[in-house]
Design a protein around this nucleic acid. Structure first.
Length: 504
DNA sequence: ATAGGGTTAG
């Protein structure tokens, strides 16, 4: 705090004392939760320059936003206007950004109207925050509209605007459009930054073009940049996720030889890569090695370790790991809650799982599609199909529409309790299907000795470019043979062989 | 104000 006061005093060196004093007072009042008193105080201070009161108003709004008290932040702005302490674009940008982070882009956009009413014109930062908000919710059309609106308002997008828009398009699965934004940026003579290239590398890797990501990484020097830690972490993760472990290992070695020092993100990335490839022991070596080197395991690292232990079936150690994490004072976030809920479901402690869901929502972390899928799977495993159905309905009500995983869990659950017809009904309602869907339904039909129906679905599956486990292939063929449909069995066998040839 | 790591199913 004294440092902040000093910096503040230095910045406004003509008014060091009143500014530092006012700043200190702001914080004092915030600390004793007397925020409402603040605005009249500022405004009654007759001699105080207008800029100072605006600055203090912004600080006040920023503190309230950090405390997630957005209603009060808005009320303070309104009070300020009434009392002659006027907000500026920074005040509104702070509020808009907080709305984007905590509520959503729609609510944030409404602030824009109130901002204009107050006579404050939005700037590039205002729109950049809104585009980032749309990106967080994966709303590509919204981002593009906001970008367009910014141009219409006569504002000139900067490198941040382009980077954010590109990120949005990649994240929502439109790499081609993201490339176009990059080209647009170049044609408008906006100089790309390293973040631009980090975003491009990440986007390429995540949209199935890891090799181009690697090529871009290799071209950085020629573009006038040198890779920094974020770049290394990005490309290592991208290569791991797309199965190019050898390349990833090479870059990791280069990182070791560079001036960059790996951080917890690097460790977590490599650890996760090991888990993904079934090398659990090696993954845990990295996990403990990281802690021995003095890095604190954070919520990401614990989350990866716990879910790996669950996958290994080692629920005892998973629980111990959860306890260790809580003992270390790690704050739980959404993904971490989901992991612990998953653990409870695996242990069959559904009551406790639902208790955790409540706890999570009370903490202001809404459940997401992962939460619902985990619960649906847990309920199905315990045979509570009706409750699982109810959760699926609730999930749809909450707007998580096409969640393949949740549907697949329910289909599998229905098949396991012998309700194949209900499973088929759900199956036909589904817009998209994948390998898991077909495997469950085909297995379910086999279990009911409906081999010809199973065979038909299996052929449909191949037609749509999906495939099922080889054990399922065998089950259908063996079933057809034992039921006397030898010709069907033969034909299916041939079709499967051709499908294999076409695929590889 | 933008970029990097963690969570679900056969």
């Amino acid at each position: 705090m004294p440092t902040i006061c000093l910096i503040f005093g230095f910045t406004y060196s003509s008014w060091p004392f009143p500014v530092a004093f006012g700043y200190f007072l702001t914080y004092f009042l915030l600390l004793v939760d007397q925020v409402a008193r603040l605005v009249p105080f500022i405004c009654s201070y007759e001699g105080m320059i207008r800029r100072l009161s605006t600055k203090l108003l912004s600080i006040c709004v920023s503190s309230l936003c950090k405390a997630r008290n957005l209603d009060k932040a808005e009320a303070v702005i309104i009070d300020g206007i009434r009392l002659g302490c006027l907000p500026d674009v920074v005040t509104y940008n702070t509020l808009i950004d907080a709305y984007c982070h905590l509520v959503g882009v729609d609510e944030a956009y409404k602030i824009l109207y109130r901002m204009r009413e107050a006579g404050v014109r939005p700037d590039v930062i205002t729109y950049n925050s809104l585009i980032a908000g749309a990106t967080r919710c994966c709303l590509p059309t919204r981002s593009l509209d906001l970008f367009e609106e910014m141009l219409q308002a006569g504002l000139v997008p900067d490198v941040w605007s382009y980077n954010t828009l590109m990120h949005c398009l990649f994240k929502c699965g439109y790499p081609e459009d993201a490339y176009k934004i990059y080209l647009d940026m170049i044609s408008k003579s906006v100089s790309p930054s390293l973040t631009t290239y980090n975003t491009l590398i990440n986007g390429m890797c995540k949209t199935g073009n890891a090799m181009n990501g690697l090529r871009l990484f290799r071209n950085l020097e020629r573009l006038g940049f040198s890779a920094e830690l974020v770049t290394y972490n990005t490309i290592i993760n991208g290569l791991c996720k797309s199965g190019r472990i050898g390349e990833a290992r090479r870059i990791l070695k280069e990182l070791g030889e560079s001036d960059c020092v790996p951080n917890e993100i690097t460790y977590t990335t490599v650890m996760k890569c090991c888990f993904q490839n079934g090398r659990f022991e090696q993954g845990f070596e990295i996990f403990y090695g990281m802690m021995n080197k003095g890095y604190a395991a954070d919520v990401f690292a614990y989350c990866a370790a716990i879910s790996a232990l669950i996958k290994m079936g080692n629920l005892e150690d998973a629980n111990a790991c959860v306890e260790q994490m809580l003992r270390n004072g790690i704050g739980l976030d959404k993904a971490c809650y989901n992991t612990i809920i998953y653990l409870q479901c695996k242990e069959g402690k559904l009551d406790y799982a639902f208790q955790l869901v409540n706890e999570m929502e009370e903490a202001g972390l809404g459940s997401d599609q992962y939460t619902y899928s985990i619960l649906i799977d847990g309920l199905c495993r315990m045979g509570y199909i009706d409750s699982a159905n109810k959760q699926l309905y609730m999930m749809e009500m909450r707007g998580f529409r096409s969640n393949l995983v949740a549907y697949n869990c329910l289909i599998d659950g229905l098949c396991k309790v012998g309700e194949v017809d209900l499973a088929l009904k759900l199956f036909h309602e589904m817009k998209s299907k994948d390998d898991y869907t077909y495997t469950s339904i085909v297995n379910g039909l086999c279990k009911k000795s409906r081999f010809r129906a199973a065979s038909k679905l299996l052929l449909n599956c191949l037609k749509e470019g999906s495939s099922v486990l080889t054990s399922t292939h065998r089950a259908v063929i063996a079933g057809l043979q034992s039921a006397g449909f030898r010709r069907d069995a033969k034909r299916l066998k041939a079709s499967l062989r051709v499908a294999c040839l076409l695929r590889y």
